[in-house]
Design a protein around this nucleic acid. Structure first.
Lengths: 403, 403
DNA sequence: GACGGTCAGTCATACGTATGACGTCGCGGA
DNA sequence: TCCGCGACGTCATACGTATGACTGACCGTC
């Protein structure tokens, strides 16, 4: 339809390329010819938006992108480029008069001036852009993490780019190093979920202390080389297990995710500690990839064992769905014959029949907290490891065991 | 813990700040002192990585970020900065010898050189970054769109930043203009979902033909000012409705989303056309926000009407969940007493009992196609409007009506 | 009337890369 | 001997912004 490389189409009949030799002569450090008569616009009086002196170069010149630059604004306002920059940065406590500020602002508005980000990035040595590394945005949890992180970043004028490692549930994780390194110099920092990276040292090779790029980890073990932001899922797991034990369950099985990461390891530890606190409790477990069919099969092996459990603690809501399907396949009613719990409070937790008792994870807040920590780090501060509370949601999938 | 602003910590005992006066003298356009003896490294023979001449400035100098520049690589390799640039860009058909190329590559590797993106953005006038505007990434559909778009972008060396307008279901949509304008100059193009923007003209003011920024719309009416990429949901709706009519249903109600957008309007049209093709069919409908509780209430009003429907066609799987809950509340069995269909094939479609007959939407492919169109547009080509097929998934929630 | 101080701006430059315009060397043909 | 040419690199510069150093005018003071 239309070529994007053409001009902006603003109707303008001025000369397309003004005589550059003038500007060139000014730029040269040699003989400053025009410096003998400084502030030529001032001789006319007060700076104003309408150009009175030079009649040929009022509309924005367009080197290539068709966008006006601070030089164009300066010309229109009758001031120098530095003044435009000062005004735009808001740094004129005693350097620029109110009237000039107004003139510059009017000129900027008239031209629709937006500062060129690439130029200021180059000049300032910072890009105000951070990378978010997550397993997959198709997982609503990480979608929420992204949203939270974006909000926190936007509040401090940062942008977020996402590198979604194509991990999926239990699949191979990609070494982030190579694709990540490409954008390396365009980044000020990295916020990475530990479940998205192959190994932590993999990341620490290019980011983190020691390497050049500030790094904050999500869902990662504190004290391992980078500040962390976590959800206290272990507490949730403890509460869940204690809740079941309090209902009287003594044969409690655990359906756990086949993923080697700190978050899942800490769930296991919390479960064990909670169980150990109540004497006479038997446990069993099965490991499974994080998919519904796999979880169903794994749950069936638990239910078909010699001493079937009266309660099934699942590492994740997805696994709980598998437990539901397995229970239905064996004719077990939830919660009368089998109590089931999940973790995550994903969208379908209330779609299940009965509604699932689970632990809600503040994903949005996790993204916010992690991003805040990263931006603090960028400001030179040393953020503390943060841990966000998980909330136990008692719904309808748990009940005392049958006598 | 650690300050990110400090040096990279590479153990190096060289002088931290090499005498800059030398470099300055070279950079000046005035008396080119050293140009009388060109290629000083060549006098030693072949360029090599180990620096033999100057013993003090082999390690990368660090002006501020601690990262080596092409100048550092040039110094180490004994060539000029231009040569480094040529080698790195792969543009040396007859300009650089193999040996020099190797030397440059070795030097780059030794220093861990990465070209500064900000500088090349400035130089090239392009950022290789596009903006993706979606309602919310917490919606897995848009998460998948993002993943597809990212893959297509990465394949052509582009990055994607996301601006998630906090829309949610039926809530107010944000005018994208302001926050979007902030990053304007840092973008090469925009890929926007029509359900994320207030009005199309809102976007067209800053992007699209006429404004400076190439734009491709997702889920938007073709021919409205920007190239589009769509999913043929209308076809899916037709297939769904025809399927129900084929089963014998003659009282078909529609649960529709309270969102004014092209995608939903086209579903309605498709439904009407399909119904009109079969004589003697009665229809009813209810509009509802896109949440489960609202949908449940709306579905109840339909079921409680004077002539209750035997089939309920829902604009979205979320609404179908409401239909399930309403049916359960009225003691209706699905599909024996009531057939239900959805659109979207979201994760819980198979969690429902019975599994939901719906239409799967190729979200990933939509993102890919849209991004491809945008990148074609950036290349100066004129992409066609694309339409992706939606697939009808016949599962267990539909059956012939009771006699 | 010379001097110090404030106000209001400008000047020049650097950030790091990409690239068109030049040199220089060596060799082969006339 | 001289010219032309290909191979190999370098030079200089521009991209647009931010900012330390500087300057001119004006004003009050001794």
């Amino acid at each position: 339809m239309t070529r994007h490389t053409t001009d902006t189409g603003r109707p303008s009949t001025t000369t397309p390329t003004p005589p550059l030799t003038v500007a060139k002569g000014i730029d040269r450090p040699g003989p400053t010819v025009f410096s003998t008569t400084p502030m030529p616009a001032r001789t006319k009086g007060t700076p104003h938006v309408s150009p009175t002196g030079t009649p040929a170069d009022d509309q924005a010149a367009d080197p290539r992108s068709g966008r006006p630059t601070s030089k164009d604004v300066a010309k229109l306002a009758g001031v120098s480029q530095s003044t435009v920059s000062l005004v735009h940065a808001g740094k004129w406590p005693g350097r620029v008069s109110e009237r000039t500020v107004r003139a510059v602002n009017e000129a900027s508005a008239a031209l629709g001036y937006r500062p060129n980000q690439a130029a200021r990035h180059l000049r300032l040595g910072t890009t105000r852009t951070v990378l978010l590394v997550v397993p997959a945005l198709t997982n609503p949890f990480f979608g929420a993490v992204h949203t939270g992180a974006s909000h926190a970043a936007a509040a401090r004028d940062f942008s977020v780019v996402v590198y979604p490692s194509p991990v999926a549930a239990g699949a191979e994780r990609t070494p982030v190093a190579s694709p990540f390194a490409a954008a390396h110099t365009a980044l000020d920092g990295v916020l990475a979920s530990s479940t998205a990276v192959e190994t932590l040292s993999d990341l620490l090779g290019t980011a983190g202390p020691g390497a050049g790029l500030p790094l904050v980890m999500l869902d990662s073990q504190p004290g391992a080389g980078a500040p962390t932001a976590n959800i206290a899922i272990a507490d949730g797991m403890s509460a869940l297990t204690t809740h079941l034990l309090g209902l009287g369950h003594r044969r409690v099985a655990r359906l756990c995710a086949e993923i080697d990461s700190w978050t899942f390891a800490s769930r296991e530890a919390a479960f064990r500690d909670a169980v150990r606190a109540v004497a006479g409790t038997e446990t069993d477990h099965a490991r499974t990839p994080l998919t519904i069919p796999d979880a169903t099969a794994a749950a069936l092996t638990l239910l078909d064992g010699p001493t079937p459990p009266t309660a099934l603690v699942c590492d994740d809501d997805v696994l709980a769905v598998g437990a539901y399907k397995a229970a239905r396949a064996r004719g077990l009613r939830i919660p009368e014959d089998l109590s089931v719990t999940g973790i995550g409070d994903v969208a379908f937790a209330t779609v299940l029949e009965p509604e699932l008792t689970t632990v809600s994870l503040p994903a949005h807040e996790l993204g916010e907290a992690g991003m805040s920590a990263l931006l603090d780090l960028l400001d030179g501060r040393s953020p503390d490891d943060v841990s966000l509370p998980a909330e136990l949601l008692l719904r309808d999938s748990t009940a005392p065991p049958r006598a």
